[in-house]
Simulated scan of single mutants.
Amino acid sequence: MSGWLQEKMGGATPAKPAEPSVQDRAIAAKDQAGTFIGEQTQAVTKAATETAGAAKQKAADTAQYVQDRAADAVQYTKGPAAAEKEAPNVFQQAGGQVMGAAVGAKDAVMNTLGMGGDAAAEKK
């Protein structure tokens, strides 16, 4: 207050209501802001931790799925590959049997006509 008013009031300063000082209000605001920021930081940290955990679980599930599908693919490719390896043997065996039968039939025809085989060599 100005000095003139203090003189008129008898030199006494008027009573102030119990109001916090500017410094006290600044400290209280800083504390509130710090609390708010701390709470927000904790919430963000918790959310990030949960998200990281969920991502880790999803990655593990995906890796397991890929591994299972790869194992299925290996089984699938082994099956036809084994059949292909057996198929030439089966065809070779069948071809050998057909060839043997053809040779046998040719020999039978030649022997019937008197043109072939051991019987022709014996007749000479």
Rank of each mutant, 00 (worst) to 15 (best):
N89T: 09
R25G: 08
Q64Y: 09
A119M: 05
N111Q: 15
A105L: 12
G96E: 01
Q23L: 10
M115P: 03
G79D: 12
W4C: 06
Q6T: 07
V103G: 04
N89Q: 13
A119T: 00
G34S: 04
A102W: 01
D72A: 07
P88D: 12
Q40F: 02
L113W: 15
A70F: 03
A47E: 12
P17F: 14
A119E: 09
G100F: 00
Q75G: 06
G104K: 11
Q40K: 14
Q6C: 10
K30M: 05
G100W: 00
A48Q: 14
T77E: 05
K85C: 02
A26Q: 09
E7V: 00
T112G: 15
K30D: 06
G53W: 01
P80K: 06
A60E: 08
V44H: 13
A119P: 00
V98R: 09
Q23F: 02
D31A: 11
V109Y: 15
A73M: 05
E122M: 12
G117S: 08
A81H: 00
E7R: 14
V44T: 11
A54S: 11
M115K: 15
F36G: 06
D61A: 07
V44G: 04
P17E: 10
G95T: 05
Q23Y: 03
L5D: 15
T77N: 01
K58T: 09
S2N: 15
T49C: 05
R69P: 01
D24C: 12
S21L: 13
L5V: 02
A47G: 01
A28G: 01
A59H: 06
G104D: 13
E84T: 06
A52W: 02
A52S: 05
S2F: 05
N89W: 07
S21R: 04
E50H: 09
D61H: 02
A73K: 09
K16V: 10
E50Y: 08
P17M: 10
